[in-house]
Structures are given as structure tokens and as C-alpha cells.
Write a protein that binds this DNA or RNA. Sequence first.
DNA 1: CTGAAAGCGCTAACAG
DNA 2: CTGTTAGCGCTTTCAG
Lengths: 334, 334
Amino acid sequence: MVTLKQLAEQLNVSVSTVSKALNNSEEISKDTIERVKELAKHLNYQPNKMALSLKSNKTKTLGVIIPNILNHFFAKALYAIEMEASKQGYNIITCVSNEMLSKEENSLQLLSNGSVDGFIMSIAEETQVKNKTDHIAVILNQGIPMVLFDRVVDLDCDKVIIDDFGASYEATKHLLSEGRKHIVLISEIEELSVGKLRTNGYLKALEEDTTSQQEPIVIHVGKDDDLEETIDNLFISNSKVDGILSIDNTSGVVALHKALRRGYKVPENLSIIGFSDDNVLAYTDPKLSTISQHTFDIGKSSVKLMIDRLQKKSTTTHVTKTIKTNLILRGTTK
Amino acid sequence: MVTLKQLAEQLNVSVSTVSKALNNSEEISKDTIERVKELAKHLNYQPNKMALSLKSNKTKTLGVIIPNILNHFFAKALYAIEMEASKQGYNIITCVSNEMLSKEENSLQLLSNGSVDGFIMSIAEETQVKNKTDHIAVILNQGIPMVLFDRVVDLDCDKVIIDDFGASYEATKHLLSEGRKHIVLISEIEELSVGKLRTNGYLKALEEDTTSQQEPIVIHVGKDDDLEETIDNLFISNSKVDGILSIDNTSGVVALHKALRRGYKVPENLSIIGFSDDNVLAYTDPKLSTISQHTFDIGKSSVKLMIDRLQKKSTTTHVTKTIKTNLILRGTTK
DNA sequence: CTGAAAGCGCTAACAG
DNA sequence: CTGTTAGCGCTTTCAG
């Protein structure tokens, strides 16, 4: 890398003159500015990032910590974050916690050494199950800003979430409006706060439904359970099921396949609604109806919140932004 | 952040003593080392990353540039890269080129200011179509190491690839061994070097097959084409098709759905082989047979190659590592 | 055993 | 208008 010093030597001026010239300082003569810039361009000079960061105490870099990059939701959120950050002149350092508290703690710890200006994070399942927040509080106490998205924690910081309760409440209402009498909820994420909220939305909708008077049926698929087997068992033990609300990313697809294989007519005799953004799930036939989370907006908003915070545009009080969801009716609902 | 200076002041010793103590220098007395370390731990001292980088001219950070993070292959590769890098004490800065040359140039340019020690990259489609390599050559000329994976370019640097030709050659051979007489190749990636190689493997296998004497049928799905429509048309215009080799990530799934919908018996009357790692495609029924790329190994090897290079373990000559592929027969082949 | 000083590349008072 | 100096946080000679 070519440095200011090298430019200065070649031009027979001082380093500070070169620096000022490149920054269009009023103090420097037009002529000198010209000469300096020309040589800088010619030698492809670029200010050393580390030196700038050390001096300014700003890295223009955000730390992003996500639980699982193979989950399409997080991949898309990461995509949105990268896009918006780069648009605003920020880089992102990505860490994957793999749903583990220890990795999350570690990443936070390692990046809080001046590597990043702030964190954008969605917390690991283990963290949520154990309800540990100390490692996050430590960061906050150091004055490093943090935006939590999707899976949040009860701490005072900026957050971006969706209305999980409302989303599945509405979806369940829709199934009820189709006249479904045996609506089952399938969840692989009952351990997560978002999972509980979504389940509650379903329960509430059924509870409020005075006409069908159906009992809620919640199928909770644990880490060690086989998803396909569990769903098969559902159809066996509960053949009258005529509505399925899947509140995670993937179980809706599996339920659809299993139902079709068992001869259910979808959506004539059975409606299925999945939860997630669309892409991956677009490859079913018929196309899965879903609750869209607008993942792209979630990521984008997280970055905006962070950068506002960094630029002190927003003042002291922390914000929780709720992104609207959408019930998208495609082929698996009437 | 707490600094060496602060520790030094509190302990009434010099900054250099503190620095040496923390680095277990022989020069410092056991006693002092003890005291220093204790306070350091107590105040949660962490060496400032930027200062270290500036001093050492090493960032312990890798720049990763991928074309599209929503493509499962790249998501998984990124996952593997992050995992291996973090294991080796490196962070990664991720940039998404979105298949655009300009974004790729930009990311390379921006990160080559001392932000990263090296690049791991898979080149954008546009870059490959236009066959532009100048921006990459510039980086290489600056002495910044680069590992290209999957989609590579004809430049002298380390590379990690798979045997694309061989993989689809073998897959086609398998279809032939099943006695398939009308094997079609579907490709969404004919613009890419890997796509061409895979197509050639298919062509070669058919050419060598003296018994069935079939004409190759290559369905090239372009950016503006509708995948589902194209596949539907295939079945209409070519109802005798009894074997499909999909050489991209997704078209195999769509082909399977469309075929089932049209009443083909899979795999009795029609075999389908997809290309990619498994995860996403596991959610079909029957399960799609695929050529597994061992994406995880690709990512991991890329990082290893990079770090070897950075640590000068490997000497001057550049390496091309080829990761083995695997034909995984599941439900869509006999 | 400890400290002073220099320097990584840069910016910004302050002097001239 | 240009240069000198100091300092961001750290490591590393070199003196003491």
C-alpha cells in the first residue's frame, strides 16, 4: 500500500500538506492540491483503514451475529443488512452463533475490541432457552450500540420485530373463515419467544371462535424429533385435520408433501399456511400460502436504526420497530 | 475501552512494562506480571484491534465476496468459511456482488485499503460473461492473496473447484445404466464456466454411449425465461423424456414437481438427478437424487488455502484444489 | 527488571 | 500557504 509519506517524499512536501490537500483543505493552494491528487490517483493511493479507525475511533464496520445462516430467514436478513450497510458506507463482519450461547458470547467478546462500531444481532436459541442476557448487557454497558432483530431479549436497546402474535392470529382467523373445524398448529420453534407468541395468536383466535368450538391441537416438534415422522403421525392420529398453520420456516412444506401423499385434496379439504418469506417455499405444488415477514425490511430497518444511533440522530431513548406482516394466499388455501 | 495507558497509570508503571507483562515477556518480574494481569482482567482489558493491525500490518480478517447469498450453495459455503475462519482466529467481512461486475470491483477496491489480509471469492455472473479480470489482477499485483472458489477465472492464484465435467459425466452414465433413452439436461447456468463444464460432461457421456444412440437435448433456461413454463414445455414437446439431469440448484425440484403433476411415475418411468448439496432439496417427495458438491469442504478448503498462504507455509506456486463430488441416489433414481 | 523513545499511517492543532 | 508536532494504542528496540 502506498502511504502519505511516500506521496510527500515524491512531491517534496510534508505529510500534513498531502493529507490536507487530499481532504480539500482551504489552507492548501489550488496548485498543490492538484499536484497531490494527481500523484495520488496515479499511484492508486488509498488511506489506510486501520490508521483512520485508530485515529477516529470509528471503524465504519458493523458486527452481525446470526444464529444460523442456512435458515433462509437469516440468510435473507443478512442479505438485506449487507446491502443497506454497504449503501451507507459500512462493512459488516458476520459471525454465526450456530444457536449456541457460548459462540454468541465469544463473538460479542471478540468483536468488542474496537473491531466494530455496533452490533446487529438475533439471539441464539440456547441463549433464549436459558434466558441469559449478561453477555449482551456487558456490551450495552460499554456503550456499544446494539440492534436486536426477530429474536429479542428483555434489555433496553433498539429492536426490530414483527407482530408474531397478530400474524398467526390473523392466519388462524383466515382458516376459520374458510370453515375449517380441525386446525392444527405445527411448530419447530416452541422454545423461542417468537414461537410462543405465534402459538398464542393461534390459541387466541380459536378461543374467540364461538362457532366451531374446536380444541387447539399444537404439534411441537423438538430438536430430536423427526419432522416427517411427527407429521405422518399427526395425519394418522388425527385424520380429520382440515387446517394447518406452520409457524416455522419449513414444516409447512413437509406437511404439504405428506398430506398430498396421503391423498388429501389441498386446498379443497385441507388448507395449509406456512410462516416465512417466500423464496424457498415457492417450489411447491400447489404453492404454499404463507405469512410473509418482509425479511428484507427487517434487515434494512435494523441497519437504519443502528446508523441513526451511531450518528446520534436518534437521541437517548431506545426504539422498537415493528415490521408489518402479510398473509399471502396462494395455492394451499381456498 | 480500557487502554494500556490506563492500566499503566493505575499501577504506576510504564506502558511498555504493561505491554510486556501482558505478553509474558521474560524481561518482566513474576510479581509485576501478576499484578498487571490481575488488573487487566479486573478491568476487562482488551487490546485495541485497530492499533494491533496498524502496528503489525495484519488484520486477521478475510474479505469474502460471493455472488448471491440467497443461493443455498453460497450460503453454505459462507457458513463453512465463517466457521473455519473463526476456528483459526480470523474474522470475515462479507460482501455480496449480486452477480454484478461493478459491485465486485467496488468491494475489492474498498477492502483493499488494509481492511483485510486476503480475499476469498466466487466471481459474479456478469464478470464471467464479460470475461473481465482486471479488477482481480489489480489485487493480485498488490500482493494481496486471493482464493477463488467454484466460479474461477483464468488467473494465477489459488483455487478450489469441483470436477464439474466429471460429476455430470458420471451422473449421465448412471442414467444411461438405468437404460434411459431420452435424457434431457436442464441448465439455468449456461453462462457460467461451471455450467459449460457440466454440460460437456453430459454431452461426452451421451457421445460415448454406443447402445442407446440418443441425441442430446439441452434445455437452457435464461435469466428472462420462466423456469416452470420452460419445463412444462419440455414435457409437452418431448413427452418421451425418461431422464433429467439438472445442473443447477433448483431446476431439479421444479422438474420433479411438474413431472409428478403430469402423471409421470418417478423413478419408474422417469429419473431425475439434481446438482447441489442436499438441504433445501431434501424437502421433496420422493427425495431428489443429487450430485453432492460437498460445499462445506469447498468453503473450509478455501480458508485453509488462504491461511496457509498468509502464513507463508505454502510457497510461491499457486494451488488448485479439486473437491470430490458424490452421486447420491435417493428417491428419484432407480 | 523497568522505562524512554520510536514508529505503524493518519489527522489536526499550532507555528511559521 | 506549508511544515512541525503531538497523539490515536500498541509493540519493540535500546538504555538504564
